[in-house]
């Protein structure tokens, strides 16, 4: 290890070792275009590295990483929303539209890749905060921790997770072959 490395660098390495794949999944959820996705992922890593200079253990490293990455991604989506005037919806609206997501009857079973594709398409329609909730749920984070990361009351997180489960079952799993 080079002698010029600082505690900030060490913390960044620790965070990337533990949450690097989650950041990559998050970037893929926020941005479908591969080139822009790479830029976003770089922005998230840059924000994370910079943030480690002020990490003060007031929250867990996991909470810190998810907040910083999400905030960087939110800036990104707000910038692109200004350009494309893209309307983003809430989990509640997405759930209400679930009947519109007609299942493709020509394929008796969706392959895993198709399920993931459908999942990404769904996530990319959501507003930043609801996107964060569904991503954290998929990462296996419990409701209390999701509330801590997002700042949403735990009651609302529980409600949103309930809706997410229904929506995922309806949109992604009905014709599954896992």
């Amino acid at each position: 290890m080079p002698s010029s490395e600082t505690p900030q660098d060490d913390l960044y390495r620790e965070a990337v070792a533990a949450y690097g794949p989650a950041l990559a999944r998050m970037a893929r959820s926020w941005e479908s275009d591969p080139d822009t996705r790479k830029d976003l992922l770089q922005e998230m890593h840059l924000a994370l590295w910079r943030s480690m200079a002020t990490f003060d253990n007031r929250c867990s490293l996991r909470t810190w990483v998810y907040r910083v990455a999400h905030n960087a991604a939110t800036s990104h989506v707000l910038r692109s929303r200004r350009g494309k005037a893209k309307a983003l919806i809430s989990i509640e609206d997405a759930e209400a539209q679930s009947g519109l997501a007609a299942h493709d009857q020509s394929h008796p079973a969706l392959e895993q890749a198709q399920i993931l594709e459908r999942l990404y398409a769904l996530i990319q329609t959501l507003n930043p905060l609801d996107r964060q909730v569904i991503l954290l749920y998929l990462e296996g984070i419990d409701a209390a921790s999701i509330a801590e990361v997002t700042g949403i009351s735990s009651g609302y997180v529980a409600t949103k997770i309930h809706r997410i489960k229904n929506m995922l079952a309806d949109r992604c799993l009905e014709r599954r072959n896992l």
């Binding site: 910079r50 943030s51 002020t54 003060d56 907040r67 910083v68 990361v149 700042g151």
Partner: peptide, 20 residues
Amino acid sequence: SLQRAETSGNVNSLDFFRSE
């Protein structure tokens, strides 16, 4: 504000989005 908030894990997602 972005530099402050983006690089601070003390700002939760809701507050960050709201401030924007």
